[in-house]
């Protein structure tokens, strides 16, 4: 029974990153992962309490523009597993889950960065295969990508299933603190690359005003990103309605229906 549970937990760890980055059905959000882990471990109630704690910690942490964020889903999964292996007392389980889950979740950032770096080579290899006319080979090479990403979460989970939290602690003790700190610092600086890349494709010079407004409201007024998004929507809506009045529809009246439809799914 314990072996089956361990295997299922590792399989879930492998799947959750692939789903989050692909189908987005079971995702890696703590609430859902915690529920599934709870079903596997046979204690949904305690698992949900742990998952709820992590879910609320994770709010507002979004994986945007290729940034690497602490993997709270991984933290939940490992936390639920180790906690329910040890105890079914809710408060104890919560404490154990936080103590074990958080460091593993942080480790998740570093492995995620590594996965994204390695995938450059996958892309190059696939393109080479294409140019040599080996189309089947190209298809196969692409599958290395999901394999790498699956391992970024399955490996730390497997280590926790096999060795409990001891090994994770050992790794973190063995590696000098400046190094792990440095990697964490890098993790919180690296989103800048995603943002800067995104900016290359946007009319920054034309709408520098908007960039500054967003920055000022977030940095000085600390408004949550959701509020700023709404404000951005307000500006966008104003611009849209004002300019739509000025611009006549170029094509016939039949297209008006399409225009309305376009607005619906884009907004």
């Amino acid at each position: 029974m314990e072996i089956i549970q361990g295997v299922l937990i590792i399989a879930l760890a492998f799947w959750m990153v692939l789903d989050q980055q692909g189908f987005v059905i079971t995702t890696w959000y703590p609430a859902i992962i915690g529920m599934i882990a709870g079903i596997i471990m046979g204690d949904v109630t305690t698992a949900m309490i742990i998952a709820g704690t992590f879910q609320l910690m994770a709010l507002g942490v979004a994986n945007i523009g290729g940034s690497s964020v602490p993997n709270y889903g991984l933290a939940t999964l490992v936390g639920v597993y180790v906690a329910l292996r040890t105890t079914h007392d809710v408060e104890n389980a919560k404490a154990i889950a936080l103590a074990v889950g958080v460091p593993v979740g942080m480790l998740g950032i570093q492995l995620d960065v590594l996965g994204k770096l390695l995938n450059s080579y996958v892309s190059h290899a696939a393109q080479n295969a294409l140019n040599q006319g080996k189309f089947k080979k190209m298809e196969r090479i692409f599958w290395i990508g999901p394999l790498i990403f699956g391992l970024t979460t399955a490996l730390p989970t497997a280590l926790c299933v096999l060795f409990g939290d001891r090994l994770v602690r050992l790794i973190l003790e063995f590696v000098p603190k400046w190094f792990t700190d440095g990697l964490s610092i890098a993790g919180s600086m690296l989103p800048v690359v995603g943002i800067a890349l995104l900016l290359q494709f946007m009319p920054v010079k034309k709408y520098l005003t908007m960039l500054l407004i967003g920055f000022v409201i977030s940095a000085y007024l600390k408004l949550p990103i959701l509020g700023i998004a709404l404000l951005g929507f307000a500006f966008a809506y104003y611009y849209f309605t004002q300019n739509m009045k000025k611009t006549p529809v170029t094509a016939g009246a039949g297209e008006a229906g399409n225009a309305g439809e376009g607005d619906d799914f884009d907004e």
Binding site: S188, P203, K206, L211, I213, G214, F215, S218, I225, G232
Partner: peptide
């Protein structure tokens, strides 16, 4: 783009 850039502007201090 207007909405996007407002959000990106906000992302810089909140994510980095």
């Amino acid at each position: 783009s207007i909405m996007g850039l407002t959000v990106v502007g906000a992302l810089i201090p909140s994510v980095v």
